[in-house]
Write a protein that binds this DNA or RNA. Structure first.
Length: 799
DNA sequence: AGCACGCCGACT
DNA sequence: GTCGGCGTGCTC
């Protein structure tokens, strides 16, 4: 007797223990781990993942049988199944949510699906399933048990496709196609006899020669220069046979010319050699590739990926959320062509599903994608790359709160392959590990072609503001006018976080800070006070600056729309493009803006952080940062690191080609070390300085941290429950553990729910894990009373 | 989510 | 006595 162990999806009471279900006779030997099933649960039906097939169950009661199969082949492979268990444990979440995050968005919908025959022969051989149609809605009732077994077999053999009911534009597209009927020799001999002025036919034959017996979509041929009449002739001569081919939606908007590996500089060569040795030696070594902007990290990635492929393995490359622009993808694709699959948030469900399918079936061996692509169903991975490893988008902010770097390391250990963490400004965590020898440090200290770093000047906005009230300093305005005259391009960066509520004196730059924590206080509009997130300190909002007694102490923050208006007013002839969340909401608009700017159809590109990352415009010779310190004022231990990284990154945007670049940084804190050291691009000194701050403040990487957040509709309830948790923690942890809070969050009320948090900082607490597991279990019961608890292991911030 | 079970107050 | 309120626990 076969019994399936199923992780069920129960909305409330979640559990990591599987439930046992009988496998009905017709599904014996067909159900395998990794498939989703529908099962009876109480008096209704729910879905779940089969995680194991066993012979007997230790459940004492009477087992129920599986109701139906959702997948005919596993959607989660053995590796990812194991990963989900580790992840649930690591992130204090439930297996079911881990498994669901591993699937591409569109597939999480369960009910309906369609079966699509890949060719006519399947339709003809199985009238009992297809009834003469190419595509049918899957309907359990209409099919016999035997047919279902057939369907599973047909999918295994790749003769049919299963399409889940995704959004409307996710339908598979069948297009007119032609199958080549010639082998290479035949095509070549035809090529020799065809008239030399029959361009279309020549092109067609050369394609057939290069790809014998392949099937091509009609417009694939047309776009490559094969004429209509040439196709007709080809059909007539028996070179081609008309057929239908499933069109795989192509998320690459344009085709890319093939490029060859570039010659490496000595330090690049050294890095590639070390990485390739680890690939060949099947070592799960982590490398930290530290290279200044323009030092050629990408080429190191590309040649290492090539090596992984040469050894018959696959490669995974992760990039930050916003960076996944055509520029980067284009470079990967120009080297590896159709072996590349791309997974990012701008894809439609249908596109994402197609890419996922290409990876799962082994058609794509290189995956480029954002955070969630770390779960790409690649097999036999030979290399994992995380570009801009310090980027905050690698940590998921809601359940399961995983850190992509850690998942990558797990997969590397499983696949016996190296991980490369690349950055110009590594996170302190990673760099500290490299210093301890846990990671191997590889450095690329030189810019390719020895381009000089841009000249960076810092403008003190305190004195500027005293002169005039413009967002732009005189020096920046003059520099902009100069570039406009020279017909060169300009990028203006506005920190979106400047919107946030903090106080600052416009005359002396004073920002109220907590007396206990050395961190800026946050405006709490609802309580009319300044609060500290770390210790709960509160004080009234001052009406005059406590330092210089000026009355001009107020909120700080400018939006990108206002900036656009001002810039247009000051420079009426300039062509201005704005890029922020508002202008890039529509699919493809991000690319459209980049293309337009790249083609020099605009003079000024202004926007938020998203313009800082990974973009490479050779015509840009001036970068202006309008409010460099707005991130700095955030009441968070990582704000200096973020500021330094951002400024270093944007500075790299200026003057990458043969023109000298200039960067103007406007700030109210010209003396802050993050800004000073960004001016000289001195990562080493920043690292040393910041490490001391982290050490003194008992922050990561010196301490481990956990953030517990509770919320409920009642402020009293939230607070009292959080105090209960505090009591519980105190009784289970050692005296060395630092427990901060509970304190109300900066935005205490969201959607009429009140948020409180507790921060735990520790070095060694063997009892912490079981204590948090217990809190997680208890939180299920408390949910009934409206209280939600979130546990964030190693949070990115304390806010 | 839904249903059973069981422990309390109000009532034919 | 018992009907039914709802808080609690369970569903393979």
């Amino acid at each position: 007797m076969q019994i399936a162990q199923v992780i069920v999806d129960i909305p409330t009471r979640q559990t990591n223990n599987p439930y046992s279900y009988l496998i009905p006779d017709y599904l014996v030997d067909q159900v395998v781990p990794g498939m989703r099933v529908e099962v009876p649960f109480g008096n209704r039906k729910i879905t779940g993942f089969v995680v194991a097939i066993v012979n007997n169950s230790d459940f004492a009661g009477k087992l129920k049988p599986i109701s139906s199969l959702i997948d005919f082949s596993p959607v989660i492979n053995e590796e990812l199944l194991q990963l989900s268990s580790w992840m649930a444990d690591e992130t204090y979440s439930f297996k079911i949510s881990c498994l669901q995050t591993m699937l591409p968005g569109g597939m999480r919908i369960k009910n309906k699906k369609r079966l699509i025959a890949n060719d006519d022969s399947v339709v003809n051989q199985h009238p009992e399933i297809f009834d003469g149609n190419h595509e049918i809605d899957y309907n359990r009732q209409k099919l016999t048990d035997k047919s279902i077994a057939q369907i599973i077999r047909l999918q295994k053999e790749g003769k049919i496709q299963v399409e889940y009911n995704l959004t409307h534009h996710a339908k598979p597209i069948m297009m007119k196609a032609y199958q080549g009927q010639l082998d290479q020799g035949q095509a070549d001999s035809q090529l020799a006899v065809v008239r030399k002025n029959a361009k279309g036919q020549l092109k067609l034959l050369s394609i057939l020669s290069a790809h014998p017996h392949e099937t091509f979509l009609r417009n694939q041929l047309i776009t490559q220069g094969v004429t209509e009449s040439a196709i007709k002739t080809g059909e007539k001569n028996g070179w081609l046979k008309q057929t239908l081919k499933r069109h795989i939606r192509n998320p690459f908007l344009r085709s890319v010319a093939h490029t060859n590996p570039l010659t490496l500089q000595p330090d690049q060569k050294q890095a590639v050699t070390r990485i390739n040795q680890a690939i060949s030696g099947k070592q799960d070594q982590v490398f930290l590739l530290e290279g200044v902007t323009g030092s050629g990290k990408t080429e190191v990635y590309l040649q290492s990926i090539a090596h992984a492929l040469e050894t018959g393995r696959t490669a995974l490359m992760l990039v930050p959320e916003i960076t996944l622009t055509p520029q980067i993808v284009g470079r990967i694709r120009s080297r590896f062509g159709n072996q590349v699959a791309m997974l990012h948030s701008a894809l439609s469900n249908g596109e994402r599903y197609d890419e996922w399918q290409r990876i799962n079936s082994g058609q794509a061996q290189v995956v480029v994608g954002v955070r969630s692509a770390v779960f790409a169903p690649l097999r036999n991975i030979g290399l994992i790359i995380i570009d801009e490893e310090h980027d905050s988008s690698y940590k998921q902010t809601d359940n399961p709160r995983y850190q992509t770097r850690d998942v990558a390391k797990w997969r590397a250990a499983y696949n016996h392959c190296p991980v490369v963490l690349g950055s110009a400004t590594p996170s302190l965590e990673s760099r500290a590990r490299a210093m301890k020898g846990v990671y191997k440090l590889l450095t690329l200290p030189h810019r390719i072609n020895r381009h000089a770093l841009p000249h960076v000047s810092i403008i003190d906005m305190k004195t500027e503001m005293a002169k005039h009230r413009s967002i732009l300093s005189n020096q920046l305005s003059n520099a902009i006018q100069d570039r406009l005259d020279k017909h060169e391009q300009i990028i203006l960066l506005l920190n979106r976080r400047g919107y946030s509520a903090f106080l600052m004196c416009r005359d002396c730059g004073y920002v109220p800070k907590c007396p206990n924590c050395d961190i800026s206080l946050t405006m709490h509009k609802n309580t009319h006070s300044l609060n500290c997130h770390y210790c709960g300190h509160k004080e009234p909002i001052p009406t005059v600056c406590p330092k210089c007694h000026s009355k001009r102490i107020r909120f700080f923050g400018v939006g990108s729309e206002q900036l656009e208006e001002q810039v247009k007013q000051l420079f009426p002839t300039a062509r201005v493009l704005r890029m922020d969340v508002d202008t890039t909401r529509k699919k493809g608009s991000h690319e459209a803006i980049i293309d337009k700017f790249g083609a020099h159809k605009a003079d000024i590109l202004l926007g938020t952080q998203m313009i800082a990352k990974g973009l490479d415009f050779p015509e840009v010779t001036l970068v202006g940062v309008l409010n460099a310190d707005s991130a700095l004022q955030f009441p968070d231990f990582r704000s200096s690191e973020r500021t330094f990284q951002l400024l270093t990154q944007v500075s790299g945007r200026s003057g990458r080609a043969d023109k000298q670049g200039e960067v103007v940084i406007q700030t109210f804190n010209p003396d802050h070390y993050a800004i000073q050291l960004a001016q000289t691009q001195d990562y080493e000194r920043f690292y040393a300085t910041e490490m001391r701050v982290r050490h003194d403040g008992k922050y990561p990487p010196y301490y481990f941290t956990v953030k517990l957040t509770g919320n409920s509709p009642s402020e009293n309830q939230t607070a009292s429950e959080m105090f209960d948790i505090l009591t519980y923690l105190k009784s289970h942890l050692s005296a060395q553990a630092i427990i901060l809070g509970p304190t109300p969050k900066a935005v205490t009320r969201i959607n009429n729910r009140y948020y409180y948090q507790i921060i735990i900082k520790y070095r060694k607490e063997p009892n912490l894990k079981p204590a948090l597991d217990e809190i997680l279990m208890q939180s299920q019961k408390k949910q009934r009373h409206g209280l939600q608890i979130a546990i964030d292991n190693e949070p990115l911030d304390f806010m």
